[in-house]
Simulated assay, not measured.
Amino acid sequence: MRIIVTGADGQLGRELVQLPGLAEKNIQILGFGRGGLDVTSLQSCREAVKRYQADAVIHCAAYTAVDKAEAEPDLAYRINAEGTRNIALAAREFGAKLICVSTDYVFEGTASRPYKENDETNPRTVYGRTKLAGEQEALKAGGKVFIVRTSWVYGRYGRNFVQTISELIKTKDEIQVVMDQIGSPTYTLDLAEFLIQLARTEEYGIYHASGSGVCSWFQFAQAIVEEIGAKNVKLLPCTTAEFPRPAPRPAYSVLQHGEIQRKGLKDLRHWRAALAAYMQG
Rank of each mutant, 00 (worst) to 15 (best):
V66Y: 01
V66N: 00
V66H: 02
V66I: 15
D67R: 09
K68I: 14
K68M: 11
A69Q: 10
A69M: 11
A69N: 09
E70G: 01
E70W: 12
A71V: 13
E72P: 01
E72M: 12
P73G: 01
D74M: 13
D74Y: 11
D74W: 12
D74S: 10
L75P: 00
L75K: 14
Y77N: 14
Y77I: 10
Y77W: 15
R78W: 09
I79N: 04
I79M: 10
N80G: 07
N80E: 07
A81V: 07
A81Y: 05
E82T: 14
E82S: 03
E82P: 00
G83V: 07
G83Y: 13
G83F: 12
G83W: 13
T84K: 07
R85L: 14
N86H: 14
I87A: 00
I87Y: 10
A88D: 07
A90Y: 14
A90P: 03
A91V: 08
A91W: 14
R92G: 00
R92P: 00
R92E: 10
E93F: 05
E93A: 13
F94Q: 04
G95P: 05
G95A: 05
G95W: 05
G95S: 07
K97S: 05
K97W: 05
K97G: 00
L98D: 01
I99G: 01
I99R: 02
C100T: 11
S102W: 08
S102P: 09
S102G: 06
T103S: 15
T103C: 03
D104T: 06
D104L: 04
D104P: 01
Y105K: 03
Y105S: 10
Y105W: 14
V106N: 02
F107G: 00
F107K: 02
E108Q: 13
G109E: 10
G109M: 09
T110H: 08
A111I: 06
A111R: 14
A111H: 13
S112F: 12
S112M: 10
S112C: 07
R113F: 10
R113N: 00
R113P: 00
P114T: 06
Y115W: 05
Y115P: 01
K116I: 00
K116R: 15
K116F: 14
K116E: 11
E117M: 05
E117L: 04
N118L: 08
D119V: 11
D119R: 09
D119A: 11
E120F: 08
T121H: 07
N122F: 13
P123F: 03
P123E: 04
R124K: 15
R124P: 01
T125F: 06
T125M: 12
T125E: 06
V126H: 07
Y127T: 11
Y127P: 03
G128V: 11
R129T: 07
R129S: 13
T130S: 13
K131R: 14
L132V: 05
A133I: 06
A133W: 04
G134A: 08
G134S: 07
G134K: 05
E135V: 12
E135F: 14
